[in-house]
Amino acid sequence: MKIIKLLVLVLTVSSFAIGAVPAQAARDHISIVGSSTVYPFATVVVERFGKTTSFKTPKVESTGSGGGFKLFCAGVGVGHPDITNASRRIKKSEYEKCQKNGVREIVEVKIGYDGIAIANSKKAAKFSLELRDLFLALAKNVPDPKGGEQLIENPYKTWKEVNPKLPNQKIEVLGPPPTSGTRDAFAELALEGGCKTFKWIAAMKKKDKKAYKRLCHTIREDGAYIEAGENDNLIVQKLQANSNALGVFGFSFLDQNLDKVQGSSIKGVKPRFESIADGSYPISRPLYFYVKKAHINVIPGMKEYLSEFTSEKAWGDEGYLADRGLIPMPKMERRKFLSDVKGLKALKM
């Protein structure tokens, strides 16, 4: 009798196991990767999308813009993600890589703007920075402070050394790693912006673009700039604990954590919703996501997801994304991208 009992047990257990196995492994949900800056917006849309439609809720992994493009451009097929979020525009090299791997038609969707905030703990003194300060404090090589047109390894240890107006405080900046779009945008807008203020460097741009870029975009590696991972939330928490440090992250994170951290003003402009929307805050960048056109009629729910994301109630002036800190595009721009999405206009570079 024992044996029968055992067999019955085996039977039920294995039938349970088999029942849990789908007959075939077709993917029925959208797979999204990409920027950690867009992640909070994408997850909100995803959640709404899952709740309001009969489709499965998409899966979102936060991999950084660069990592996202890398996965996205690896090829078409269910093994590859359908959408990648990016906190900067796709680069030509990435686009070419996509083409090479058979990802030929890509739909570009700009979703709004995000400022890059440079913030520190509320407990510490407020910073008021110029782009040049940022460049001098964070670039790997800087013009010799003694003058002349030669470069030396970044000698600055405190903010006061960079600019006498700034507090006498060790340079310690927590920021995203190079895979992140925030880092790219920060290097492009803030460091290059500061870099250009040296006339002789600006002149270099025409002569030797590569050297110019290398100079302006390379961040120092001697410990003053600390890579705090892709997770911007973590940076906020770390800033709260360490009042000596500054952090670089998206405006939405600043907006969510105004009780913990304060944004430094750049060129005298404070990071505010309005100042970013009107473009007066100098370090702000557009946010995007990119869609594989080949997947649109294959993976269930792709079209519906796109229309959810591009609906007024999501990305509009009073949409729920604005509540989360996304700065909406002007109405005209929204209309343009909406029609792009509707027509699935493929990106050309």
Binding site: A20, V46, K59, E61
Partner: peptide, 17 residues
Amino acid sequence: IGMVAFIVDIPGGIFDS
């Protein structure tokens, strides 16, 4: 193995995310 992702749906089988 990628079990860190934003997943809203409650998984129903051993192949679901």
